[in-house]
Nucleic acid binder design. Structure first.
Lengths: 252, 252
DNA sequence: TTTCTCCGTTTGTCCGTACAATTGGACGAT
DNA sequence: ATCGTCCAATTGTACGGACAAACGGAGAAA
């Protein structure tokens, strides 16, 4: 992917234009092998090292890059993927603990769903692909995951081997759009007896209920609900005055 | 409070020393009236404007300052207080919605508690002050809050008018240490029938259970549990690829 | 083959300068 | 009293330069 020359007549600062271009190239996985050095970027974009460092500093506000003097800059893939929201942070925290994640298909079908359609902003009679899975960590139930996606571009999901757990990878493989932004909402619930049975929960156990809307180019393309065991997974934070703290999912 | 001169022989970068000094002064509320300009800081600490801007940039990583060209720098108190963890973020989100927060004392007594003592790292027979309150937002129950603090320095809490909601302000007023860091843990629970009654919850309702340890100078001085209605308050996040996202509490 | 040294590369730190964009207050005009 | 103009103050943007700290690879020595 060719770089975008900077526009010195633009009211947008040079560092901001440079950051946007680098971000686009980063999301296109162009820096998997190596990230350009400060010198390479000054030469490629014809700006000073100060401007390059300012752009990279902003790009790196989320810790997506690892920079070290003498060594250079590499892309922190784990951090990049963690930026796909709470659900993927949870999956990643399980993976970081070295626990194998698998899933069992509960339902894989074309259906309609009034609530999902409403969230996706499409007619309620529109056909949706429902992927309902029981997710396990180390063979133990972790969550019941239900994803509804418009049939018009998610139909290829019907032909997938779902013992893997990567919905987005399957979408990408099929050339379908993959969500890259959205919102999530976390609520405590008492699961239904059917969900309790699947998760191996007692009658007195509560669980987390995560609702998630995934969009591409501002367009909703994924509505998802996930019931997460609250006895094995919870959210923790270290807080400190003057320092931003954030809840992160962790296994008990 | 006098500023701390920078040590140019220290391996610690100048900007890092300057940041630490500014942070200390910020926590001592020294910049309530005004935050020094870049020029004032270069003159006071005898460093370049570049070093000053680097220090302020780091200090401001949490958004605790608001900087604008032409206007100057002011302290963002709301952001600073929000950095006291999820519980205070919740309280603040209610306040930002313009809803009055009050509290009713349920229990205010000297007691012992094995779990609290364990979390505080003191003998289980040690005397603790228990402040148990029902917290309301706009007259509607929001949470049941229980705080245990060692009696040796929290005894003044026994003489307080608790219709206000500011535990830390009361501690500060009494000259007692106030927590400035710690950890929190969020779990979903089915509340007891007593707690359900106080919160106005149905039998089928789950709630959030927040456990929190507050420390000062690395020493635990507050153990706290809070049951938060899950039907009225939840955690939401906006996520975006390549950008850090965080769950924040919000009223429904 | 292994270890050590040297050196080039890379980012971090620090300095200085210049100018632009924005803000707010002072002051004059109405 | 109100409005408009001007200007100083303040932060943001951009450049250039210099040197330090850390790293890794090449090549020599053992």
């Amino acid at each position: 992917m060719a770089l975008t020359p900077l526009d010195r007549n633009s009211p947008m600062p040079l560092w901001a234009q440079l950051e946007a271009d680098l971000r686009t190239r980063l999301e296109a996985n162009e820096f998997a092998e190596s990230f350009p050095t400060d010198l390479e970027l000054t030469e490629a974009y014809k700006v000073s090292r100060h401007t390059v460092r300012e752009a990279v500093r902003h790009l790196n506000k989320t810790g997506v890059l690892k920079r070290e003097r003498g060594r250079g800059t590499v892309v922190n893939r784990a951090e990049f993927e963690q930026s796909l929201g709470t659900l993927y942070s949870l999956f990643q925290s399980v993976e970081s603990a070295g626990v194998e994640q698998t899933s069992e298909i509960l339902r894989l079908e074309v259906t309609t769903d009034r609530l999902a359609a409403a969230q996706l902003g499409i007619p309620e009679e529109a056909q949706l692909v429902l992927v309902e899975r029981l997710r396990l960590a180390g063979g133990v139930p972790l969550a019941v995951d239900r994803a509804w996606l418009p049939h018009e571009f998610a139909s290829t999901l019907l032909d997938v081997d779902w013992s893997h757990t990567a919905l987005y990878a399957e979408l990408a493989k099929a050339g379908a759009p993959v969500p890259n932004q959205g919102w999530e909402r976390l609520t405590p619930i008492v699961p239904s007896s059917a969900d309790r049975a699947m998760l191996g929960l007692q009658k007195s156990d509560a669980a987390f209920f995560l609702e998630r809307l995934g969009c591409r180019d501002q367009r909703p393309i994924e509505w998802r609900t996930t019931i997460i065991r609250g006895d094995r997974y919870r959210f923790v934070t270290d807080w400190s005055a003057g320092t931003r703290s954030e809840l992160r999912p962790t296994a008990d």
